[in-house]
């Protein structure tokens, strides 16, 4: 094994005792023969392993969790707030409808239904109107054929009126 290869392994798998380092035996063999690489290994141990061996492990400050909790709760509060506001708005709309006095509500509903029905069937409305007018014309004509006198003008007027309608 050459020095370059040995030093590369010293800086990685050999130093970290990685189980996948199949060349550990060869590195050891090389180190027995190479003073320079032995020195390299010692300096590496001191400047790398030794520097971090005393690293202190700390717990995060208390305020970190408080901050996280506050953010979670405020976010949950906002979403609950939106839902609550929506529900309240719906409840308010229904309650304002329910607060109308019942007779007024029934009357309003009846008018609304009548308007809807009439607007939905205009032909029915016209037929009813024409039927009523024809009945009235026939009735007045019959009166004229009988005992009526001096009523020509009236008869003519009626005929004109009926023509206008029909």
């Amino acid at each position: 094994m050459k020095c370059d290869q040995a030093r590369e392994l010293i800086l990685t798998d050999y130093m970290d005792s990685e189980p996948g380092c199949g060349l550990r035996h060869e590195v050891d063999e090389h180190l027995r023969q190479c003073v320079s690489c032995c020195e390299f290994r010692e300096v590496a141990r001191e400047k790398i392993i030794g520097q971090f061996a005393s690293a202190r492990v700390e717990d995060p400050p208390e305020f970190v969790w408080r901050g996280i909790r506050e953010k979670i709760m405020s976010k949950a509060g906002v979403s609950h707030g939106i839902l609550a506001n929506s529900a309240a708005a719906i409840r308010l709309a229904f309650s304002s409808l329910l607060s109308i006095p019942r007779p007024v509500a029934v009357l309003v509903a009846g008018v609304m239904i009548a308007i809807l029905l009439l607007s939905a069937a205009p032909g029915m409305r016209r037929r009813a109107l024409y039927g009523y007018l024809n009945e009235q014309i026939t009735f007045i004509a019959n009166l004229d054929d009988g005992e009526a006198d001096g009523s020509d003008i009236f008869d003519t007027d009626i005929q004109i009126g009926a023509d206008n309608f029909l």
Partner: peptide, 18 residues
């Protein structure tokens, strides 16, 4: 790791001279 350690080897401190 290799590059990082090569960099750390060059830091001031105990010297290694090839």
């Amino acid at each position: 790791l290799k590059r990082a350690r090569e960099r750390l080897m060059k830091a001031p401190g105990k010297e290694w001279r090839p």
